[in-house]
Amino acid sequence: MEKIKKFCRNPKFIFRKVAGEAVLIPLTKEVADLEAIYSLNDVGVFIWEQMSEPISLEELKNRIIAEFEVDESVVMDDLSQFTAELLDSGVISED
């Protein structure tokens, strides 16, 4: 049986909300790099919060649908793309 992939945050990113902007700041050699900041929208913040513990895309999708009134097919497409981007940039990792 195939193991369900789960994802969680990379602890080497600091999350901050400043002046209405939610951002992720990478820690490179213990230094917060303000040159490489990522911005998150409300859904992105929600996903980041859910990833404090390892979570599957299916579970994440269900939580997003419960929290925001969005269409399931749209959520799954965007979520897959978002997760791929986060994995590429090292913001999250596979558990």
Partner: peptide, 24 residues
């Protein structure tokens, strides 16, 4: 859904000042 993640944003000077202070 709108794009969830915007890569490498440039902060305005006020935001940079607040984030810097906060992190330090």
């Amino acid at each position: 859904m709108a794009k969830l993640l915007e890569m490498k944003v440039v902060l305005d000077p006020g935001q940079l000042a607040r984030i810097s202070t906060d992190l330090l």
